[in-house]
Design a protein around this nucleic acid. Structure first.
Lengths: 209, 209
DNA sequence: GAGCGTACCTACTCGGGCGTAAGGTTACGC
DNA sequence: GCGTAACCTTACGCCCGAGTAGGTACGCTC
């Protein structure tokens, strides 16, 4: 007579738990979030969470992985095919900012959480490395198409700069709810591509003196 | 007979405590760091820490502020004067990467910690905003010098992208101890300035279709 | 309609670590 | 020399929240 509590198959409950966990973790942060609150949000009791998804750290990592794979899938899916490099980059950025815009508060916050916290930073570093690698390859193709050469490490550094700039703009986007994600992507593309294009042509800046 | 424990004036002890706190916080992270360990590292007992610097959060904020003000001072000091904008940016970047290089592990880790953790993220956001503002002004001067115009928000966005890219390269620098900070600054300058220069001339990228 | 496995619960234990109460001891002013 | 203020300590209270023990109810199969 209290709450009827529908019985549901495991797979469904796991997703509900993850949904709840993402919300609570992003609101409160990893440490301030309590397992009790997550369980309550999921409409379930705490031991179920432990039974299905393990300890608190495991749960957080599960959240991280689910959201990360969604993001990466969105980006690589959009940037696939064999279009010219700038078009690929553009589509990738659009997908990225679209994702962030759609999940404002959710994903970014989780991501920010994880970057500092020791058990998780390796996880995040891995994701970033994968993203950077994709971009580095893309830049490499652009260089080759322009008939130039560039060292591996130069490409890597540029890719990391691009990733960092995009993350930063993603934060900015979250803080400016009226801003259109598409527009943010365009802005990022302008900054990234005009600089990249110059570099790919062999231009370099040097101190004036 | 046990440990002689020199008595020291407050100002000195406070600095020792902050030194210890920065080390422990960056090693362990905010939550995993214990006040006992910090006190021990400082060669003092716990109640002294509370007496001088307050609760754990206060202590962390004190660390953050001290390190941040050192960084900002280094950057703005280096970029001062009325040199041409690219020269100013270059000097600022050099100071930034020099600082990070000299404090590998220390500052960056602390900074990463703080960005996610709720009570501190506002603090960090404020610092970033100050940095971005400085850069935005600088870019604005460059635009004006080129006889062009740019909206406030365009400049702001570019500044944030630049800050994000620099942060990202700073992380990369920390993970590559053999890399020279000066070189990292040059790389960043190339990426930033060539793109900026193009934008300032009124160039824009647009989708091919 | 008995049995069995899976979903689910209430109600605890237990440890870690923040913050403090209450009391010693050294230096410095006069 | 003696008070007093600042330095410094040991030793504890106490809360909070992760994780678990042990048991109940539901529904599916034959």
């Amino acid at each position: 007579m209290v709450s009827p509590v529908k019985r549901l198959p495991r797979a469904v409950r796991e997703q509900q738990m993850l949904d709840a966990a993402v919300r609570v973790f992003s609101r409160r942060g990893f440490h301030a979030a309590s397992m009790d609150e997550i369980a309550e949000h999921a409409g379930i009791s705490k031991p179920m969470v432990y039974a299905y998804l393990g300890a608190k750290e495991d749960l957080f990592i599960a959240c991280l992985r689910r959201e990360a794979s969604r993001l990466i899938e969105a980006v690589t899916g959009a940037a696939g095919g064999d279009l010219p490099p700038d078009e690929q980059l553009w589509r990738g950025l659009r997908a990225f900012f679209g994702f962030v815009g759609a999940h404002r508060e959710g994903w970014t916050v989780l991501y920010r959480q994880a970057r500092g916290q020791e058990p998780f930073s390796r996880e995040v570093a891995g994701m970033r490395a994968r993203m950077a690698e994709v971009i580095a390859v893309l830049l490499g193709r652009a260089v080759a198409a322009a008939g130039q050469r560039a060292s591996e490490s130069d490409l890597e550094v540029m890719a990391y700069a691009l990733v960092g700039a995009s993350e930063s703009l993603a934060d900015w986007l979250v803080d400016h709810p009226t801003e259109d994600p598409e527009r943010a992507a365009t802005r990022m593309m302008n900054i990234a591509w005009l600089g990249a294009d110059q570099l790919l042509r062999g231009a370099t800046w040097r101190p004036s003196r």
